[in-house]
Design a protein around this nucleic acid. Structure first.
Length: 487
RNA sequence: GGCGCCAUCGUCUAGAGGCCCAGGACGCCGCCCUUUCAAGGCGGAGAUCGCGGGUUCGAAUCCCGCUGGCGCUACCA
């Protein structure tokens, strides 16, 4: 039997990082077994539906490199892959359950249900449907009221009131639930759409899904699902509940903890490879030491039995570190192209596009080990692209020349002269400047700082002489003169 | 309130009875390297394995209780 997993988000907003972690596990499990990974849209909540989020879902998967074999935009043998286009199948399942006596129509108004719940809460009782419509008597009466008000019914599952049901979870092992605590939950809403419970089960069966991976928060609804599988005589897929991803305060990761959208991370300069690696390591590990893991290694080694049970706090500092690792280890040509694209986005509009690829290719090796986030790239190398340096005189002088602007000016003139005569390689430049520092009785470091400011306009830069070599003699001499003249 | 899940350094984790008075990573601190900033190297602090009982010659690992955290408790997923 081939393994088939699916990522089945509800298009109600921008894809959440916690859900994407589940998608990564789904993807990994399918690829590990040479099976299929499927995308299905669960758009049954018509009130929260957000059409804009639909393209964002596939965009986020594509960004992370989670290619799916079947889905709304790629088709497949079990389509359509959008629940709103499969309404008939849920109705049919509900009808079957109704006919078998495993379900019943409920005509109660939401006003009555709300009142009931409020009262039960007040009495500190567990909120639960009182089953008024479960008996034909109650149903007939409720139906008359509903029809008078022009309301439709819902279909509820007829939960047995005694007994237990056991969930065999691939990660959490067995948990047994008392059926008496399980409500007669709604499967089909009055608008004709199924709730999650019915919808996913009918679709997974039709799409031959073998493994269901989902957040831990579903574990308490699992007994309902078990009841439906049983009533419908479906072989349940492997159920694997995943530990939650938490925010720094220990509560389920949400907007208030910061970014929960992958796009926010992408825009902040995080690489998809790093994001993938990091997310895959939330709740799963390869061994006791490996942190940086390639996609191929993940696919080769990913198994459900190495998923931990305990929830994990999303540690953005580690993500950032990992991002730096990926930047440092990336092949040079890819890195240069990535940096070039980043610069095209981040450099001021006054800098001509497209950015010179050859120039970036020379700069990239100098800054790659300094950069953790792509958004830092421009700050390290903008002076290569614009001659419009603006710096404060105070910074130019620095600590060493703070009270001696005249000395600084004289030094800069000597620097320009020495540079003009030097062979234009970083080694020769460094040798010349060290000799000059000696000559004028300055510390090499102090002189270098002065030159750095004059040539780059910044206090923190890639290695000075390598930068000068790339900048070229003319631009460097011009900048040195401008700096000298400013004093 | 009810039901459920979980519990190893601040954080992510290794650990499936002796290899563990607990290993790795991020972060933090110090030193080295060094023209700035990084990167890198070396070292350090940091967990009486939530608490209390068992079982066992021996427990982070098994059992029970407690406590704590989290989740669910919708015609949302």
């Amino acid at each position: 039997m081939t393994v088939r997993t699916r990522y089945a988000p509800s298009p109600t907003g921008v894809p959440h990082i916690g859900n994407l972690r589940t998608a990564i596990f789904d993807y990994l499990l399918a690829r590990h077994h040479g099976g299929q990974f499927i995308l299905r849209l669960e758009d049954t909540d018509r009130t929260r539906l957000d059409l804009d989020s639909i393209p964002r879902i596939s965009e986020s998967l594509r960004w992370l490199g989670l290619d799916y074999d079947e889905g709304p935009d790629v088709g497949g043998p079990y389509g359509p892959y959008v629940q709103s286009e499969r309404i008939d199948s849920y109705r049919a399942a509900a009808d079957r359950l109704l006919a078998q006596g495993d379900a019943y129509e409920c005509w109660c108004s939401s006003a009555r249900l709300d009142a009931l719940r409020t009262e039960q809460t007040r009495l500190k009782q567990p909120p639960k449907y009182d089953r008024r419509c479960r008996e034909r008597q109650g149903q007939a009466e409720a139906r008359r009221e509903a029809e008078a008000e022009g309301r439709n019914c819902v279909v509820r599952f007829k939960t047995p009131d005694t007994g237990t049901i056991t969930l065999h979870d691939a990660i959490y092992d067995d948990s047994t639930f008392d059926l008496a605590t399980i409500d007669d939950f709604v499967m089909l809403k009055s608008d004709g759409f199924p709730t999650y419970h019915l919808g996913y089960i009918v679709d997974d069966e039709a799409m031959k899904i073998t493994h269901v991976l989902r957040g831990n928060e579903w574990i308490s609804s699992a007994p309902r699902h078990l009841l439906i599988y049983r009533a419908l005589a479906f072989e349940p897929p492997v159920l694997a509940h995943l530990p939650l991803v938490l925010g720094p305060d220990g509560a389920k990761l949400s907007k208030r903890h910061g970014a929960t959208s992958v796009f926010e991370y992408r825009d902040a300069g995080y690489l998809p490879e790093a994001m993938f690696n990091f997310l895959a390591l939330i709740g799963w590990s390869l061994d006791d030491k490996t942190e940086i893991i390639s996609r191929e290694q993940f696919i080769e080694h990913f198994t459900l039995d190495r998923i931990v049970k305990n929830p994990a706090v999303f540690n953005i500092e580690k993500l950032t570190w990992m991002n730096g690792m990926y930047i440092r280890e990336m092949p040079e040509d890819r890195l240069a192209e990535l940096f070039a694209q980043t610069l095209e986005r981040d450099l001021p509009a006054s800098v001509a596009r497209p950015i010179d690829r050859a120039l970036v290719a020379r700069i990239a090796p100098l800054i790659r080990e300094r950069v953790k986030l792509l958004t830092e790239v421009a700050g390290y190398c903008d002076f290569f692209f614009s001659d419009d340096l603006s710096y404060a005189k105070e910074d130019l002088l620095g600590k060493a020349f703070k009270d001696r602007p005249a000395d600084a000016k004289a030094a800069l003139v000597r620097v320009a002269d020495a540079a003009a005569d030097a062979e234009w390689t970083h080694d020769a430049l460094e040798a010349a400047m060290r000799a000059l520092a000696d000559e004028i009785g300055a510390k090499a470091g102090d002189l270098f700082s002065l030159i750095r400011l004059a040539v780059t306009g910044r206090k923190v830069t890639p290695p000075l002489f390598e930068s000068m070599e790339i900048l070229g003699k003319d631009r460097c001499l011009a900048r040195l003169r401008i700096a000298a003249d400013s004093l």
